[in-house]
Computed example of a mutant assay.
Amino acid sequence: MKWLFVLFALAAGALMPLQAGINLRLRGSLGDPVWAAAVSFGVGTLALLGYLAAARVPLPSMAMAGSAPLWSWTGGALGAFFVLATIILAGQIGATSMMAWLLAGQMMAALVLDHYGLVSYQVHTVSWPRIAGVGLLLAGAFLVNKY
């Protein structure tokens, strides 16, 4: 069962440079990376709303929404920043370097989040093999960027 999630993660990861390239093209048409990110998020919001309507997912109650901590409402803003960053980076450093550096940054942050159990993650203590794995990803990012 865990392998299905691994395959899902691989598929989602494979779509990230495709999304960045599509949004880069949109930037070219709209003339501004912030407009391209806003349109991308708008289309994504419409797609999600369409799914919710088609699947007949009930609206959460106000009590449920109100029980969420304030910081948990910032995910959309972080996602918007990520989309904007990929639009800017894709045009400047290319898909491979962009993805290598994004992955390296994600992994460094993930080590800290896991180690301290921040933002609802279960604690997964930092170990030398995990640090080595992230170090290898950083080395890979340097190599991809250099060559």
Results as ranks from 00 to 15, higher is better:
M1H: 13
L4A: 14
F5G: 07
F5A: 05
L7G: 11
G13D: 06
A20N: 14
D32V: 00
V34H: 14
G42W: 04
V43L: 15
G44I: 00
L48S: 09
A53Q: 14
A55W: 02
R56A: 12
P58A: 06
P60R: 07
M62C: 08
G66A: 10
A68H: 14
A68C: 12
L70H: 09
L70D: 07
L70K: 12
W71G: 04
W71Y: 12
S72L: 03
G76W: 06
A80Q: 06
V83Y: 08
L84Y: 09
T86C: 13
G91C: 04
Q92G: 09
T96P: 03
M98Y: 05
M98S: 01
M99E: 05
A100G: 01
A100R: 07
W101L: 05
L102M: 15
L103N: 07
L103A: 14
A104W: 10
A110Y: 12
L111V: 03
H115Q: 04
Y116W: 15
Y116V: 11
L118F: 14
V119F: 15
S120P: 02
S120K: 11
H124Y: 06
V126W: 02
W128Q: 04
R130N: 06
R130A: 14
L137V: 15
A141G: 08
F142G: 01
V144E: 01
